[in-house]
């Protein structure tokens, strides 16, 4: 018994990691030598995207058919969130004149990340892969990296569209700077170009994974100690953490979106 307990406790770290990590290949699929196999996170991504498209198309139906729609009920609630992204993120960062141009990208970031964050909170996706962990797709750094790479290119495209190709690169260096400073400044600017999407990638993935790790760690004593009373305490604590995770899901979607929008805005309006 004591040996069994010891075995469980040494395995607990691996168990937790296995529960928050992506599944293996569920359907093997390769195209032009690239492995495009379907994993649990791909399926969760598709579910999130389908859900978001369905809900957003339903909520925005009045806006496509009427000139000056008056929202009510669910449409009103959805419009509130859209207006929050517009007035809270887009207008202060990219500016009022660029909202229509960059709004779709920023809105898509916010709503897709938020949907995936929430999906990760629902303890049902473990059944997709025969009881494998109920993970969050946004906790996978491959996905957040893919999103951050979109931000990376969006920053460059925004600058080039606004100032032209050469002016954009020139804008990265502030004027009236001694040449000696440029030797330090240019590498820093180039580094920051890559550090920003890297930070976006890691912040979102780590935050979304951390909550799951915390919850699993709190559940772990049940399996180590085989005690029902510990289970009561663990469940009570995890209910609290779930509420915290709801906030984290919203905040992280907001932070990723806000920073992406801020970087795009800096590219449109340099030296501010």
């Amino acid at each position: 018994m004591a040996q069994g307990g010891h075995e469980t406790s040494t395995n607990i770290g691996e168990q937790i990691i296995a529960h928050v990590a992506n599944s293996g290949e569920m359907i093997h699929f390769e195209l032009f030598g690239i492995n495009l196999s379907i994993t649990k996170h791909v399926i969760m991504l598709w579910i999130a995207a389908s859900l978001l498209i369905t809900v957003a198309l339903y909520a925005s139906r009045k806006y496509r058919s009427e000139k000056r729609p008056i929202p009510s009920g669910f449409t009103n609630a959805f419009e509130f969130v859209v207006d929050f992204v517009r007035t809270g993120i887009l207008i202060p960062t990219v500016g009022k004149n660029h909202v229509l141009k960059w709004g779709p990208l920023v809105m898509s970031f916010f709503f897709l990340i938020l949907t995936m964050n929430f999906l990760g909170l629902m303890p049902m996706f473990n059944y997709i892969n025969h009881g494998h962990g109920g993970t969050t797709p946004t906790g996978n750094f491959n996905m957040t990296a893919a999103l951050a790479i979109i931000t990376f290119f969006a920053i460059i495209i925004a600058g080039v569209l606004e100032h032209g190709f050469f002016r954009y690169w020139k804008n990265m260096i502030p004027g009236n700077v001694p040449k000696a400073v440029l030797i330090i400044l240019i590498p820093i600017e180039v580094m920051s170009m890559f550090v920003r999407p890297f930070a976006l990638t890691m912040r979102l993935a780590a935050n979304m994974t951390a909550g799951h790790i915390a919850m699993l760690a709190i559940f772990a004593p049940i399996f180590i100690l085989h005690n029902a009373y510990v289970g009561v305490a663990s469940v009570a604590m995890n209910v609290g953490i779930t509420f915290l995770e709801i906030i984290v899901s919203i905040v992280q979607a907001y932070v990723f979106t806000l920073l992406s929008s801020v970087f795009i805005g800096q590219s449109i309006h340099p030296h501010h």
């Binding site: 991504l45 498209i53 198309l57 779709p104 898509s108 996978n140």
Partner: peptide
């Protein structure tokens, strides 16, 4: 890389569909 590519494809679909049908009309 598979997940990254699927993310791009899915994101672009979301961007195009919702960009034209939901976000722009709402904004």
């Amino acid at each position: 890389t598979g997940l990254m590519i699927w993310t791009w494809i899915t994101f672009i679909i979301v961007l195009v569909v919702l960009g034209t049908k939901a976000w722009k009309p709402m904004i």
